[in-house]
Design a protein around this nucleic acid. Structure first.
Lengths: 104, 104
DNA sequence: TTGGCAGGTGACTAAATGGTCACCTATTAT
DNA sequence: ATAATAGGTGACCATTTAGTCACCTGCCAA
């Protein structure tokens, strides 16, 4: 979980996740094109951090490495950590749940 | 928002937030007692980072500085950023809303 | 089979960060 | 007033991290 927080702390890495939301399963070269301000090595390093945090999974296809977004750690972060602090957000969810259950 | 992510990237700072969830409005000295592994200066630096990210607000009372948790940035993070990735979480909220509205 | 293309590795530099300290200011109690 | 207490500041060092590069491996197609 600490790896997830640290991975998300960088602006570039969040932008990489954004790029994968737009189009999932991109290769390193494809991602490089979208970040001309960085070299291939910079992109690869950030991808490695995201992969170590399990935020991105990869699959080799021939000589390409395709990158896929894995939303699970972010959901866990929301469920296990954020919900503790964002009380009103959680409360509204709980309220809705109770409302649904009472009307059902 | 970047400041929030960076502030949350550190384990010690998250622990400080935890301490404020347990008991809000603590002084520097009180927080230091709960983190004996760190000096007062370390605690102060981390509090400064949290304050810069607006995750903690302070209020002076005599020679004490009291620290209060501010959940707003975390809620914004959940609403504006996490909801984009944790689709199932958001979807269940939307589903509930629609369910409530249709039954009402 | 060989040339070019996609990706990977280790070493290196520059900058940011965590942690500490000597020293300072402001407030309260005696 | 003055001593003790709570907090603040600037400099400092060690570690980590972002970014780059020269060079290497593996895969595909002409």
């Amino acid at each position: 979980m600490d790896l997830v927080f640290k991975a998300l702390a960088d602006n570039t890495r969040r932008a990489l996740l954004d790029a994968l939301v737009e189009r999932d399963g991109q290769s390193v070269a494809a991602l490089c094109e979208q970040f001309p301000s960085m070299t291939r090595f910079g992109v690869m390093k950030h991808l490695a951090v995201l992969e170590a945090a399990n935020l991105v999974t990869t699959r080799r296809q021939g000589r390409n490495k395709l990158h896929y977004l894995n939303p699970v750690p972010i959901q866990q972060l929301a469920d296990r950590w954020i919900s503790k602090y964002a009380q009103p957000f959680t409360r509204s969810l709980v309220d809705l749940k109770q409302s649904v259950e009472s009307t059902a």
